[in-house]
Design a protein around this nucleic acid. Structure first.
Length: 712
DNA sequence: GTTCTAGAAC
DNA sequence: GTTCTAGAAC
């Protein structure tokens, strides 16, 4: 680990200190689903799910101290003084040095804070934090077992300025003459912390004496101590500066948490987190099939983590009946260690057939630990689900499949007449069969865990993939329903609307490709290939080393949304032309990788495939929209588009909101605070591409044997 | 789609 | 002070 830690003797106590320093914040460490917390407002609520509270595990309460003060107010000195004298494990997160000793970003700080809190450490947030908005993101990271404090270093501006002017070697490089201007400007926008923001305690320090007292107070705050709540030391209320320290007993923590647990379960029906498609699943193979719990829990956590990295706006919940469940606690522990966002992957104690009615957990899809015949009975989850869903599930299952192999799954839409649908809101049951280590049951693996683990991995990956496609279908259905309602609501109005949508207003700049396609001879310069039905040209502003457009010449086929079954021959020829150029480029530089695809909502009129190398090494790639248009689901691989149109008559168009997503490396999925940082990362990232891209020839490379075959 | 620029963030 | 983003204009 790249942080320093150690022990110092202090009054006979063991003292631990932790100073964050590079290379702890290397880019690879930024791979953390938890980063969604500050970025994705939809998971604002950072509390752990009620089912995550367990009496034995409850750690001492940690404290998040947000320091508030301009440069020169002595924030760093404050932290260091407390950390060297305290018995509590503290982490100081200082944005000025977080990036390999240099100034870093807020996202990096947020990540460091989240990590420290996850480890049960207390945190000093050493940045100015003068405005409410600057504090808010950090406060969102807080979980229920952490108290948020503010220490306001409210010293006279001239004191701060003179300290800045006189200091040398400041971490944030703010020193000398320009400091005065910066401090004054910052103080103009100062918003004093308020308890309403969510602080448990706020300590104001008006002078050096106050600061000393506050340092003493925090230094003496032992691991299980708790300061009293409220505002202290504001203006001249000196009597409150030295607050009483009360012992915080574990017992009271337990009581509080069990209370929270109750409240959580009752109110979670309206919980905003319930709006995401959620898959509830039992642990596969670990009960009747006697699969090793430790191995199984590893596989569950890894599979879930991998899935959640790739798919947004979904949740997974591992469910077991008993709160003493060994598999639940193993998974909880391992998921915690990996820093998986517990709002997206949770463990839940309850009956999988009554999650909503009894537990308040809305799960649109549940998994069934099925038998190979896909028949009811046998006891356990399988019997319970078939019983709760009624006969209609048996019928619906039979329509889909007769039997199932270990390691695979079968998704069955649940008829709306099923009680499970009506009462619990379950739209699909996914049957899944895992490996069997029980000699009494079919397909006994004779303790071959190499095979067993592979099958279990396959089973979970098949389950999660089924869930993803089900969730996607449901989402589209809802959208269509809304559209239908709108149309029924006002035929004349909606007619106009549709016309408007259909004849989308393309700006003059958006017609360049259309004009070229209609009259290529006029725009011959720079065209790589012209035929009767298509044109290939270099993108005027290439976003990678190689970036060409394969343009349809069909008038009226403006964008992906317009592409229907009758256009399939055109789509196939565009694709083949693209693959041909990929092969040419690969023969010139075999180190490249390529993708061929469409933008869900293009900026330029006239249907075109982007053929783009995956280095994204280009000065024309300048902003978030550029990046996300090629690396999120906004980019629709040509192979998928052809499959979808063949199967459903049209291709899925993804939401333009994807373009606003955080910046993630397209290979290792690490998050980055801005485009320059992202670009320097991707210049060196050599992680393998996500598994999804390695399938179905979505990614073309010199080593891809099928590349050549695709031309024919 | 790009360019320009105000202002947010540091 | 500088760096970076996001929105307007084209």
């Amino acid at each position: 680990m790249g942080y320093k830690s150690g022990c110092l003797g202090h009054l006979g106590h063991k003292l631990e200190f932790v100073l964050i320093e590079p290379p702890f914040f290397s880019e690879t460490n930024l791979i953390s689903p938890r980063l969604h917390l500050p970025i994705q407002s939809s998971w604002k609520d950072g509390r752990r799910h009620p089912s995550h509270f367990s009496l034995e595990e409850e750690p001492n309460r940690s404290v998040m101290v947000i320091l508030v003060g301009p440069p020169g107010s002595g924030k760093s000195t404050f932290c260091e003084a407390v950390i060297t004298a305290s018995r509590r494990p503290w982490v100081r997160v200082c944005q000025d040095i977080i990036n390999n000793g240099k100034a870093g970003t807020k996202v990096q700080s947020l990540k460091a804070v989240a990590d420290a809190l996850n480890e049960g450490k207390s945190v000093f947030i050493d940045r100015c934090n003068l405005e409410k908005g600057q504090r808010a993101d950090f406060m969102k990271l807080c979980r229920s077992q952490t108290d948020i404090h503010a220490v306001v270093l409210d010293l006279p501006a001239k004191v701060c300025i003179s300290r800045c002017v006189n200091r040398t070697g400041h971490e944030g490089n703010l020193q000398g003459g320009r400091a005065a201007a910066v401090v004054n400007k910052m103080l103009q926008n100062k918003e004093a912390p308020n308890l309403n923001e969510g602080f448990y305690r706020i300590t104001f320090c008006q002078n050096d004496m106050d600061v000393k007292e506050a340092i003493k107070m925090y230094s003496e705050l032992g691991p299980s101590d708790k300061l009293s709540s409220g505002e202290f030391g504001q203006k001249s209320k000196k009597e409150n500066v030295q607050p009483s320290i009360m012992k915080f007993f574990k017992k009271s923590a337990r009581e509080e948490n069990s209370q929270k647990e109750k409240e959580g379960n009752n109110s979670s029906a309206n919980d905003s987190r319930n709006q995401f498609p959620t898959l509830a699943f039992p642990s596969i193979s670990t009960s009747d099939f006697q699969f090793d719990l430790d191995k199984a829990s590893d596989i569950i956590v890894e599979s879930a983590q991998d899935f959640l990295k790739r798919v947004d706006n979904v949740r997974l919940a591992l469910v077991d009946l008993s709160d003493k469940s060994r598999i639940l606690s193993l998974v909880r522990e391992k998921a915690g260690k990996k820093g998986i966002d517990s709002n997206r992957f949770m463990t839940f104690v309850g009956d999988i057939t009554q999650l909503y009615s009894k537990g308040g957990l809305r799960c649109t899809v549940i998994a069934n630990a099925a038998n190979w015949r896909l028949r009811p009975g046998g006891g356990g989850v399988n019997a319970a689900i078939f019983k709760a869903a009624g006969e209609v599930l048996e019928v619906a299952t039979k329509e889909r499949a007769g039997t199932i192999n270990p390691g695979s799954s079968v998704a069955v839409p649940l008829p709306s007449t099923s009680p499970l649908y009506q009462r619990e809101g379950v739209t699909h049951v996914i049957h899944i069969l895992g490996p069997n280590m029980n000699p009494q049951r079919p397909n006994y693996l004779e303790d071959d865990y190499t095979k067993g683990c592979k099958i279990l991995r396959d089973a979970y990956s098949s389950l999660f993939e089924s869930f993803a496609s089900v969730a996607c279908l449901e989402r589209n259905k809802k959208q269509k329903l809304v559209e239908l309602k709108e149309r029924a609501g006002g035929e004349s109005k909606s007619k106009e609307k549709r016309e408007e949508v259909k004849s989308r207003n393309w700006g003059s700049w958006a017609l360049a490709l259309y004009n070229t396609a209609m009259d290529p001879e006029k725009h011959k310069d720079g065209l790589l290939e012209i035929s009767d039905n298509l044109i290939v040209l270099n993108d005027l502003y290439p976003k990678a080393k190689k970036h060409v457009l394969v343009l349809s010449r069909l008038n009226g086929l403006d964008c992906l949304e317009d592409a229907k079954r009758e256009h399939l021959p055109m789509l196939r020829s565009l694709h083949s032309a693209g693959v041909k150029w990929v092969n040419k480029f690969l023969s010139e530089d075999s180190s490249l990788y390529f993708r061929l695809g469409y933008h869900s909502v293009p900026s330029m009129r006239q249907l075109h495939i982007h053929v783009i190398s995956q280095d994204f090494d280009s000065p024309s790639l300048k902003n978030k929209k550029h990046w996300n248009s090629f690396t999120t689901a906004f980019f629709r691989d040509s192979v998928d588009v052809m499959d979808e149109i063949e199967e459903h008559g049209s291709a899925k168009i993804t939401d333009e909101k994807l373009l606003e997503m955080e910046l993630r490396c397209h290979r290792c999925k690490s998050a980055h605070p801005n485009i320059p940082k992202l670009k320097s990362h991707i210049a060196k990232c050599r992680a393998s591409f996500p598994p999804h891209l390695l399938q179905n020839n979505r990614l073309l490379s010199a080593s891809n044997n099928d590349t050549l075959e695709q031309i024919s």
